[in-house]
Design a protein around this nucleic acid. Structure first.
Lengths: 203, 203
DNA sequence: ACATTGGTACCGACCAGTTGGTATGTGACG
DNA sequence: CGTCACATACCAACTGGTCGGTACCAATGT
């Protein structure tokens, strides 16, 4: 209650700049100077807050994870009571946020891990953590649907949760290849179709 | 008949090196010197064959596309006569090639487009082209299955073909995040499950 | 038979600009 | 006073790219 809409501090400005610039140009393609210019600060400030570029990327992954956590936990669809409806509404919500430019709606974590998985283990570990945490938020609903419908499955709730994330990450890659979100919407429709078939959803 | 297993020429050595190194470190993270060292040639040779690093990446995308085209067109599963069996066998084949290290089985095109979509339009266009061409090879089988089973669908064969590629690309990202192919296998199992449900496949 | 020409393939030193990172300074604040 | 939060100047290493030169080969002229 104390903080009355404080201006973003320098560290936050740098992290917000990182979200935008890294999603636009990639991690290796982004220089520290790029970030400083976008954030409107100097290099001295950058290395005051982060001990290296890699350290900043780890913090940016956490920043992105926290932003996503806020977005999804506050979304309207979370109030639905039926687990299957909530799961399907999650996919619809993901479709609805495919707005604006590609750097605005694509996933920093997928971008980071693709570039850094071999060369920057700390970044890869952070990306993996926040992707996995997000997937985990879907598991209770999936488990509930499986139990309620007595789904005969040779797979786990966790594997289906990860599958949804694979579709989302893959749809971002195709969206980047094709220069717009339409193909990603189509992919999420197929994902929705799969979930409905799997759980024998009646319209 | 003249050429009796000629040694790979310098250009090919550079392109093969590019497949490996770029999939390991990303495009921006790979220097021209890295490539030359891996290929065992000098920078003079590099810029003799490619007018720029970007030009080389476009050629590497084509090289990767040609390699994939050879791999899939020669694969055993192609001899199956039933289109649905062939489609399902494609997914199984994709599972079977998830062997070795991550840089060996992941997709150069996905890696390139994720990094270059905003900053290097020529690279993005090449990646899009070869991804789309590969997806297109699945369309005849999908169309045949849809026709044979009278599938009532509000989607097209092309959209399902692209969806398979999204799942594959996304499964590579998760594999990189988790450091191994197991999660990708799980994702391809879900893809297979979707196709079977969609087309009412009897085991 | 042999010198000349011209082209391809390649080498490796070199260049200007950029990179991540550091060292030092400075003003505000407690 | 000291500490925090930054700014400025600077550096060695590396970047993509250039350029003059060399080795080799085939065609051509005499």
């Amino acid at each position: 209650m104390v903080e009355a809409k404080a201006l973003p501090d320098t560290r936050t400005k740098l992290l917000d700049a990182a979200l935008l610039v890294i999603r636009t140009k990639g991690y290796a393609g982004t220089s520290v100077d790029d970030l400083c210019q976008e954030a409107g600060v100097t290099k001295g400030a950058f290395f005051h807050h982060f001990k290296s570029k890699e350290d900043m990327a780890v913090a940016a992954a956490a920043h992105f994870g926290a932003m996503a956590e806020g977005l999804f936990s506050q979304a309207d669809y979370r109030t639905l009571s039926d687990p299957l409806e909530r799961l399907l509404a999650y996919v619809e919500f993901r479709k609805s946020i495919l707005q604006g430019t590609l750097p605005e709606f694509t996933c920093l974590l997928g971008t980071l891990v693709q570039e850094a998985y071999e060369t920057h283990p700390a970044i890869a570990a952070a990306a993996n953590r926040y992707i996995s945490e997000h997937a985990t938020t879907l598991e209770p609903d999936i488990s509930a649907v499986m139990a309620a419908r007595g789904t005969p499955a040779n797979w786990t709730a966790a594997s289906l949760a990860l599958y949804t994330q694979a579709v989302i990450q893959g749809s971002f890659i195709l969206a980047k290849a094709k220069g717009g979100p339409q193909v990603a919407v189509d992919c999420l429709n197929h994902l929705s179709c799969y979930l409905k078939l799997l759980f024998n959803h009646k319209p």
